[in-house]
């Protein structure tokens, strides 16, 4: 059974329909990369998966929860869905450690010592244990993003959503972040990654979705989609970015 099911998803901002009719499924442990030109709706699509955007129509089922149902406890569902943002969105008034422990302590009522132990393990994983007591303002972009990944992982989510995680980074920082993401994929995390990193999509993605104009135009295994795109729009896009 798929862990994410999206049926006839529609999303409008005022009169502008950004997502027109999205149907997609993601299997457990699958890494799905979403590519497409800017304005194609790919970030909006991702943000609908944890209802950061209110959904205008259709159904989104996350790990068995219909998140558009009126009585769904969205906060509960969000605990199962980690999210990493383009702009990191670390809490600047909290140390790296506090950023990571906030969720477990306030939501799960984890003991502080235990939450910190977990946080340090996660920092080991992203290679930043030494920065535990630094503030986000003292970190480079790549380090911030790795902390943001650790923060999302601290809730022990079943799914991780990445919204252009490397787009705001200096080129030399991109590698470190992608490395962490690859590791995560290898460990079997279910991931949906909106990205412009075609290399990453090709290497790590199990499936690539190409979006344009509020629709999914084409989806396929990376080798197929990049090597043998079927649609004109996919071809046109890939010829510009590859």
């Amino acid at each position: 059974m798929s862990i994410i099911t999206v049926k006839n998803l529609k999303k409008s901002f005022g009169n502008v329909e950004v997502l027109k009719d999205i149907n997609a499924e993601v299997q457990e442990k699958e890494v799905v990369c979403v590519i497409g030109p800017s304005g194609s709706g790919k970030s909006t699509f991702l943000r609908c998966l944890n209802r950061l955007e209110e959904i205008s129509g259709g159904e989104v089922i996350i790990n068995g929860h219909d998140i558009t149902a009126p009585k769904v406890d969205i906060n509960k569902v969000r605990q199962e869905v980690g999210m990493v943002f383009q702009q990191f969105n670390l809490f600047p008034h909290k140390t790296v450690l506090e950023n990571i422990t906030l969720g477990p302590i306030k939501i799960r009522a984890t003991k502080k010592a235990e939450a910190e132990k977990l946080a340090l393990e996660l920092l080991d994983k992203v290679g930043l244990r030494a920065k535990a007591n630094s503030y986000p303002g003292e970190l480079s972009g790549g380090q911030k993003q790795r902390v943001a990944i650790a923060r999302a992982l601290a809730m022990n989510p079943k799914i991780m959503l990445f919204d252009e995680p490397t787009s705001a980074l200096d080129p030399e920082m991109v590698g470190d972040v992608l490395e962490v993401m690859k590791q995560l994929a290898k460990e079997g995390m279910t991931m949906v990654v909106v990205t412009h990193e075609m290399g990453f999509a090709r290497e790590v993605g199990d499936r690539v979705i190409f979006m344009d104009g509020g629709y999914i135009v084409e989806e396929n295994e990376p080798n197929q989609l990049f090597g043998n795109p079927q649609h004109e729009r996919t071809k046109a896009f890939l010829s510009k970015v590859l």
Partner: peptide, 17 residues
């Protein structure tokens, strides 16, 4: 920045938290 609220909500914090 709106991103702060979004990050907080995405972890699972309520709007009050």
């Amino acid at each position: 920045d709106k991103g702060q609220t979004e990050a907080a909500r995405s972890i699972g914090l309520t709007s009050v938290q």
